[in-house]
Each structure stands twice: as structure tokens, then as C-alpha cells.
């Protein structure tokens, strides 16, 4: 991911800044620029989501995505956050045999990857079991 593309999403990736629609009150994450429920009537404002959620589904990835080879095998999950939105995230610091659907997690700050060995380092969110 090129530097500007990563950089402009730093608030979203570091601090789970999404959006809340002033019209329907729904919280949206990952960020959106039009409320999909209200469309033109929507009034989106930045909203920082709470860092708590629970596991809806998970997989242990053995054949890693490009750039994630050194982390394999790793846990990938869909998390439903307390504020409502769902996101895809790795679950870190966890024995893969111990994870269950419904487990409570907190979103934490971790190293996601790097542009190259001499490129920028990408940081973002992962989940950790509470």
C-alpha cells in the first residue's frame, strides 16, 4: 500500500474512527462517506468506536496473505464491535485452539506489515481476547 493511501487512513486504523449518521444514528465502520441507509438525507460525522467486540467467525490462516508469511499461522476473524459495526481483524496473542465464536475481544494496536524492508511500517488494529 502506497504511503499516502496508508497515511490518510491513520485515524481509522489507529483509533477506529468511523462515522455516525446524525439522521439515523447508525455507526459506520470501516469509514463511509455516504450513509447507506439515509443516502442524501444522511449527516455523517466522525465517530470513534469503542474498542470492545465479540467474535462472529474465525479461521486459522496457514497459507498467509502476501506480506503476512512471517506471522503464519494466524487467526483471522470477523468481530462485531459494541457500537454495532463489524470488521475483519486478526486475533493476536492467542492460542488458535482456544478461540470460540462469541469470545469477547478488545481492539489493540499492532504492526500489520511493511511496504518493503526499507519502506514504511504499517500499523493498525488487531483483536485480543479479554
Amino acid at each position: 500500500m502506497a504511503v499516502p493511501r496508508f497515511w490518510r487512513e491513520i485515524p481509522n486504523r489507529y483509533n477506529l474512527v468511523g462515522a455516525r449518521c446524525g439522521n439515523c444514528n447508525k455507526v459506520l465502520f470501516p469509514p463511509r462517506y455516504i450513509c447507506p441507509y439515509c443516502r442524501r438525507m444522511g449527516k455523517l460525522e466522525p465517530y470513534r468506536l469503542k474498542r470492545r467486540g465479540k467474535v462472529l467467525s474465525y479461521t486459522v490462516v496457514h497459507i498467509a496473505a502476501n506480506g503476512f508469511e512471517d506471522q503464519a499461522p494466524y487467526l483471522l476473524a470477523i468481530i462485531e464491535l459494541e457500537d454495532g459495526p463489524r470488521l475483519t481483524a486478526q486475533i493476536t496473542d492467542c492460542n488458535p485452539d482456544e478461540i470460540k465464536i462469541g469470545d469477547e475481544v478488545e481492539m489493540i494496536f499492532r504492526r500489520m506489515g511493511e511496504e518493503s524492508q526499507d519502506g514504511v511500517i504499517y500499523y493498525g488494529f488487531k483483536a485480543r481476547r479479554i
Partner: peptide, 27 residues
Amino acid sequence: LATAADQEWEVFVGATFPGLYALMARR
């Protein structure tokens, strides 16, 4: 093939294409 998934919010966090279907399968 993974570029068919959301680069910003799926692939960036380590999702693979089989991984997404695995999440469906597990559920």
C-alpha cells in the same frame, strides 16, 4: 485474486480469499 476482496479493510489486515470463505464456512 485477493484484489477481488476489500484491499483497505480485508486484505490489509491479512485476509486471504480462502480465508473469507473459511469465515463463512466456520459460521
